[in-house]
């Protein structure tokens, strides 16, 4: 049993991590909140003045905000759909007996280790480029007009690139979950005459539901902050066609030097992320208790 002595020691030992994380969470966030009520542009230092809610009013009524909000949702939902569906299918495939499973696993997991700037640049230039990309070569070889992915469907192109990066993650987690499935239960169901489809629906899916929740939760956290892929491919354009909330705040604060407006956008992003986080934490909490 833990003694009073060890409790004190434990408190001492956990405090550096807790204090650091607390400061990391509270100090910059409080500054963002403060800046969001100021008229503050880096190009005009010393001109800061109280602005009330006007930054929020400008940010929330800016048409770019609604585009960015919609783009963020489309990007996150699109990537989640592709990676979860693809991940389930791939995990089911990789769970079958085969030759060289270890090597296939290694091939499938590789995209996850590729840094975002590399995967974005390789995809946009060497695959999606309308003149020299492999897709353009393939289209021309088949007598079709090459498609300009980034100009014509910028958001879809970014969604595909990000999905390629995250598919291995979903696959690996779902495969791990599949491998912990009770074989005897499966065999018993098969003995009782359950076909492959009903075995999948009534045994595999319920077994996977918890891991699917985990995949959705963790990917959403990371996907809400997708940044580098947009920066090096479209710069949020054409226009604001591929600007997400994260990118919009970046443009406002780092390119237009509008600290006040950027901070207001940052607070809006934090609030939205927290809504998702609460919703998802509750989901994962329920799954943990079950």
């Amino acid at each position: 049993m833990a003694t009073q002595h060890s409790r004190t020691a434990a408190r001492l030992m956990i405090s550096p991590a807790v204090i650091l994380l607390f400061l990391w969470m509270i100090v910059p966030l409080a500054m963002t909140l403060y800046f969001s009520f100021l008229r503050y542009n880096l190009l005009m230092p010393g001109m800061e003045e109280w602005a009330g809610f006007s930054n929020y009013r400008y940010f929330l009524t800016d048409p770019a905000f609604f585009t960015a909000l919609r783009n963020t949702l489309v990007l996150v939902a699109g990537v989640l759909m592709i990676t979860v569906t693809g991940g389930i299918l791939l995990a089911l495939l990789l769970d079958q007996p085969m030759w060289g499973q270890g090597i296939v696993r290694i091939l499938v997991i590789a995209p996850f280790f590729v840094m975002p700037t590399v995967s974005a640049l390789v995809w946009t230039n060497m695959f999606m480029n309308p003149v020299n990309g492999l897709f353009a070569h393939a289209a021309k070889a088949m007598g079709l007009q090459p498609y300009d992915f980034l100009a014509q469907s910028p958001l879809l192109s970014i969604t595909l690139i990000v999905a390629w990066q995250w598919l291995p993650f979903a696959t690996l987690i779902l495969l791990t979950a599949l491998q912990s499935l009770d074989r005897e239960q499966m065999e018993a169901a098969a003995m009782d005459g359950a076909g492959p489809l009903s075995r999948f629906i009534y045994i595999t899916v319920p077994h996977l539901s918890r891991s699917i929740t985990v995949v959705i939760l963790i990917q959403t956290i990371f996907l809400l902050s997708v940044f580098a892929e947009i920066l090096v491919t479209t710069n949020g354009g054409p226009g604001t066609a591929s600007t997400t909330l994260t990118y919009l705040v970046y443009v406002q604060s780092m390119l237009q030097f509008d600290v006040g407006g950027g901070a207001a956008g940052g607070i809006v992003a934090v609030i939205l992320a927290n809504i998702v986080a609460i919703f998802l934490m509750r989901m994962i909490g329920r799954n943990l208790d079950a």
């Binding site: 500054m31 902050s225 780092m254 607070i267 934090v270």
Partner: peptide, 19 residues
């Protein structure tokens, strides 16, 4: 601790840059 990971980086970009 997990929840601190959920704070979007862009929410603290401005102050971090200034600091």
């Amino acid at each position: 601790m997990l929840s601190t990971k959920m704070m979007p980086a862009v929410g603290v970009l401005v102050p971090m840059y200034l600091i």
